[in-house]
Structures are given as structure tokens and as C-alpha cells.
Design a binder for these strands. Structure first.
Lengths: 200, 200
DNA sequence: TCCTATCCTGACTCGTCAGTCAATTCTAAC
DNA sequence: GTTAGAATTGACTGACGAGTCAGGATAGGA
């Protein structure tokens, strides 16, 4: 029997490269050759593991999603106090560091691609559901502990998440009026207004 | 001297068609031939009025923006009471009717395109500034009239607008968890929380 | 009526790129 | 060392679409 399989690591390598390229030049301009080059391989190899360009892109979106979740897992376990947990969780989405910025870029590309692709809508639905449930759960914990004001946790989670999306988008667009600092301020204001303000 | 100029109306016709096509199949898949067909003309004519595809797209984004503003002008004049004005203005952005949906679609495409195009970032900056100023002005009016709670109107405007963007995006994506009705509810909740709730 | 500038057309060119494939290299087992 | 199947390569093909262009149509003015 020949060689041990390198499929898993080669796919990872390609998808990681794909995410980098998407975030740098965008889905529209991305060529398979770009991904291959970034992954340090050839177009033939990319096609060996993925049938079509669409396959690569879908898998890359999944990859981006899975990693985003993984990166946040520790935060959810680290803070027993729901006030701190909520603050830290939201802070982890601020587009400050390179990794988070890249993830947001890929996200934005996914959204627009999904407008005309029902498979990607399904992915968005899954991801968004996950995110919504996570935030709503923290809010519920905080309410149970008597820290947060009453009110439907799901509506508040939706409002919070959507605002973060919208704010992040403006930051990504390099708006002179929406910096990471202002984004943080806006988040804090809404948390305050919703009675979800973390402890000082 | 020959013929009266048809340039203005022909450009309008082409840009309107371009917006329709963008909203239907997306920027990426859009071909000049699609725009020409939709406008009831030929690719040659499109190139007669616009040098490159990029020109068409940028002009289409401008077109979409200008029309969005025009459509809302009457709302701002119609309601003397800032509470009603804010409610009506926000309601006009709910992606319910065909026209608003189309405008949102084009918006979303602009955002992602702008991630890698500084001219479009400039356009976004202008549009967003306009929007932010408008909402902030209404909030300020409401505060002056003693209807709204105190607090920085610009931060609140930013928070509100971003949330509307994020919510609208999920509605556009056909999320089962984010319908127009839930979007309305989320908006109302934030208005309440910010002490910007319109009169009943 | 002719003239002229504007407007319109669609066939064509030419670059680009996804996807194919035949040839080659590599690795592990025997 | 031989073999078999996995992995890799990059030149090639075929489709596609932006932008060009030469040839016309059209509308007003002289």
C-alpha cells in the first residue's frame, strides 16, 4: 500500500490560502492560480482536491466559519461572570488584529455571494443561528443572575449582532467616521441602553 | 446642428437597467450584455456612453444612492414631530417593497466591491455621512423638543444605522430567523432602549 | 434635397481563466 | 528493487465576455 494520505492537511493548506486571497483581493477577482500560488502548489493540485472553483469557495467559507468558532470557544469558558463573558465575546469581534480582520473580510464576501446562492444562505443560516444562540444564552445567564435587565434575549441578541455586523462593515471600509474605537463606544452604548452593561 | 441630445435619458435608462441586473444576479455575474438587453439596447450603445464596465458600475451605484435619497426627502418634510419623523424614516428602510429591496441589494454589492476599491469607499463615505447626519439631526430635534433621552446623537445614529444595515442583510439573505417583522421589532426595541421611542 | 454630427449596432478580436489530462514523481509495502 | 496507487505538475483547450470598430441609421438645419 502506497503513501499515507495527505488529503486533510493539503485541503487545510488550500482553504487557508483561499481565505487569505479572498480577504486580500475579493471573491470576484480571485483566480484558482492565486490560491494555488499562495498555497505553494499548482492549479492542478487545487483541482485534484476540489472539483470546481465553487467547491473551493464554499469549503473556504466553511473553513473560515469553523475557525471563527474555535477561536472563541476559550472565551466562553474563561469567564464565569456573564457580564465579563458578554464583554469579552463582543470584544473578540472588533476588527483590530489581522486574523479578525481577515475573517470579517471573508464574511462580507460570503454575504454578498450568498445573495444569489442558496447553499451559502444555508451556511449563513447555520452560522448566524450559532452566533445568535451563543449571545442569547449569555444574556439569559446574565438575566438569571440578576445582572441584566429583563427583556427578550433573542431580540436583543439579534439587535446586538446586527449592529456589530454593520459597524464592522464600516470599519472594514476604512470609514473615517467609524474606527474601531468608535465601534467599541457604540457597542458599549447599546449594552448600556439594553441594561446589559458589564461590571466596571 | 443635428438632433437634440438624448444622452441624459439614455444614461438614466442604462443605469436603471444596471441596478436591476445587479440586484438580480449580482455584480460578479453581471455582463455588459445583460445591462444592454435590460435597457433595450446594444452593448455598443452601453460602451458609447460609458468607457468601461467599471464606469457603468460606479455610475450605477451613484444612481442608486441619489434615488434612495430622493425617495426619502418627502418623509423628512412630511412629519413635523421628530418622533414620527424618526419612525417613518426608519420604516422606509425596511426591505419590504420591491424598490427598497432592490436598493438594498445594490447597496450590499457596493459594500463588498468597495472593500477593494477606494473610489467606492469614497462614495460609501459620502452616502453614509449623509445618512448619519440625517438621523443624528432627527435625534437632536427630538432631544431639543424634550421627547428623546439625552446622549450623543451621533453615536446613537451610528448604532441605529449599523443595526439596520445588519438586520436588512439578514432579511435579504432570506434568513428564517430574520423576517421584516422581526427586523421591525428589533428596531423598536433599540429605539425604546435609547429613549427614542416614537409617540404611540 | 443634401449635409453633418450624433447615435446606434452587432460581429469581431483578444486576453483571461476554469477545468482537463498525459506525463511524472513520490512513498510505502513487499 | 520492484510495484502500485497516490499525489503533483503545468501545458493546453475551450468558453466566455469586455471592449473595438466599421458601417449604418436618424434627425435637424441649410
Amino acid at each position: 500500500m502506497p503513501r499515507v494520505s495527505v488529503e486533510a492537511q493539503r485541503r487545510e493548506q488550500i482553504l487557508s490560502a483561499a481565505c487569505e486571497v479572498i480577504s486580500e483581493i475579493g471573491f470576484k477577482s480571485l483566480r484558482i492560480a492565486d490560491v494555488a500560488k499562495r498555497a505553494g502548489t499548482s492549479t492542478g493540485t487545487v483541482h485534484y482536491y476540489f472539483t470546481t472553483k465553487r467547491d473551493v469557495m464554499h469549503a473556504a467559507f466553511e473553513h473560515n466559519f469553523a475557525h471563527s468558532l474555535d477561536r472563541r470557544k476559550p472565551i466562553l469558558d474563561e469567564y464565569p461572570d456573564p457580564r465579563e463573558r458578554l464583554r469579552a465575546f463582543i470584544a473578540s469581534y472588533l476588527p483590530e488584529d489581522q486574523v479578525t480582520l481577515r475573517a470579517w473580510h471573508v464574511w462580507a464576501e460570503l454575504w454578498v455571494e450568498a445573495l444569489h446562492d442558496s447553499d451559502l444562505q444555508e451556511l449563513n443560516e447555520r452560522v448566524y443561528g450559532e452566533w445568535r444562540r451563543t449571545v442569547a444564552a449569555i444574556i439569559r445567564d446574565g438575566q438569571d443572575a440578576g445582572y441584566f435587565a429583563d427583556g427578550d434575549p433573542v431580540i436583543r441578541a439579534n439587535a446586538l449582532i446586527s449592529m456589530i455586523d454593520g459597524l464592522a462593515l464600516q470599519v472594514l471600509l476604512g470609514s473615517r467616521n467609524m474606527t474601531v474605537e468608535r465601534m467599541r463606544t457604540a457597542c458599549d452604548e447599546v449594552l448600556q441602553a439594553f441594561g446589559l452593561a458589564p461590571a466596571q
